[in-house]
Design a protein around this nucleic acid. Structure first.
Lengths: 256, 256
DNA sequence: CTTGCATAACTAGTATACAAGATATTTTAC
DNA sequence: GTAAAATATCTTGTATACTAGTTATGCAAG
């Protein structure tokens, strides 16, 4: 079953070839829009959203052939999408057997929250030190938008604005990439969070907490800003017990 | 070019099907060893190592067909490997054109180091609070092993022991998964680091710094432990200027 | 010699056929 | 009727042929 590796040094992939036919692109961003419309990308996004929204709950069977028919495309792009999901631990693929939406790893949840707090703390502290006036104004605008969306009761858009606030803090701190890291770390937590019913006044509370963070930043009080952010993120603290009763099969405990 | 999405709600992948032929596996880890021997996995590891070791420098062209012939396998598993690398931003794949080893994103380097410091700080602090005696003994053993490997001049094994120390700290703090996160974040930094020539006495210095961290942990002095770890990680600080002269095409600046 | 263009060669994206193993179903023996 | 074995039917893994777009190359015109 294993590959033939007998006579080769492994990892030597055309280097000596003197031709060097085409040079690497200076800006690899060029075709990024094209990439977004690739079939595998579409399938990936759809499935990923459905899994995170718990539209596809843990344990659901994903059959490549079915997805193939749904989208009217072949297995190759579908497979690519599923492999990406497997890497994010959103699905488990069992060779020659089946692919299933993965359970939510409880241990990972705790660690993800801890990690996020640590990273956001850095961002907030740095943002306090070196945010530009325009960045602060932009953050104010985001909070105002949150307020409007909360009033309108638009959960989805509010959620996006919420993310924009945190991304903005990271940018203001000079570490936009750290928000990207947080987003990757956050995936499983998000699945958990979507199981909780929207609570009354939750959005208003978030707006107030964001405002407290920004206030402290504007006052140049880094410690207060960090404290406000930490307090804000502490609300994410998970209480698995409740959900274990409701959906016992949704969670994975023995991550080992 | 785009997929047919006309009449479907997107993301509805067999859910109502009452059959539920096979239930999801209780322990998805079962076949993990099998996964490790999959062809795409082998190609992935080989290429990844070569890219991180800078055996395959940025800009190198990777041609699926060539790799296919090298390993004596078909394009499918090769493609899977390359797609995984693309996701880690280790390669840039330009549709219908070519695949190239990605340049090292300079901006990302700084952020990765900052993020790592933040995460390691949490681990060290927590490890000070709740490391078990056996965990501390294991860490001592790792340091001793580092000392022996430094003496023997075994760079590769030392490097692994180095990682084991940091992983051990994370475990002792109760957050083994955070080390996994760090490893993902660290990839590009590692490429940069491999460009630096091995410096005399570097290994010995690392051993001493690790010992300082562990000493503070054993004394229950969290602040000192964190300070020691931060000081240790500060040695990673990058000085891009030097390398920009030597290999100007290895780095990407305008990440945008 | 330079420039523009047609053309050929080569790339990754996709579709599809087949292989190998796991699970479900049926059949058979008792 | 029950249990075990044989068989059919699923699944994902792999190989390969084909498509469509990109880049290089050579030729012709100026």
């Amino acid at each position: 079953m294993a590959v033939r590796l007998d006579e080769k040094p492994a990892g030597e992939a055309r280097q000596r070839k003197p031709r060097a036919r085409n040079s690497p692109p200076r800006s690899p961003v060029t075709r990024q829009s094209a990439r977004a419309t690739r079939n595998s990308e579409i399938v990936y996004r759809d499935l990923r959203d459905a899994i995170i929204n718990v539209t596809l709950p843990p344990g659901t069977s994903l059959v490549e052939k079915d997805i193939t028919e749904t989208y009217g495309i072949s297995r190759t792009p579908v497979r690519e999408a599923i492999l990406r999901l497997a890497e994010e631990r959103l699905v488990d693929v069992v060779p020659k057997s089946g692919t299933f939406v993965a359970r939510i790893p409880v241990t990972e949840l705790q660690e993800a929250i801890v990690a996020r707090k640590a990273l956001e703390e850095v961002c907030v502290r740095e943002a306090t030190a070196k945010a530009s006036k325009s960045q602060l104004m932009a953050l104010r605008a985001v909070i105002q938008r949150e307020r409007e969306l909360a009033e309108a009761g638009n959960e989805q858009a509010f959620h996006e604005a919420d993310n924009a606030f945190h991304a903005g803090i990271a940018s203001a701190g000079g570490y936009p990439g750290i928000w990207t890291m947080i987003e990757k770390i956050r995936v499983q937590v998000e699945r958990y969070r979507r199981l909780t019913l929207p609570q009354d006044g939750r959005m208003e509370m978030i707006v107030a907490e964001h405002a407290a963070v920004l206030d402290a930043i504007e006052q140049g009080n880094a410690d207060a800003a960090v404290a406000a952010m930490t307090s804000h993120l502490n609300k994410l603290q998970i209480d698995i017990g409740t959900f274990q009763d409701l959906w016992p099969d949704y969670f994975l405990f023995d991550v080992k």
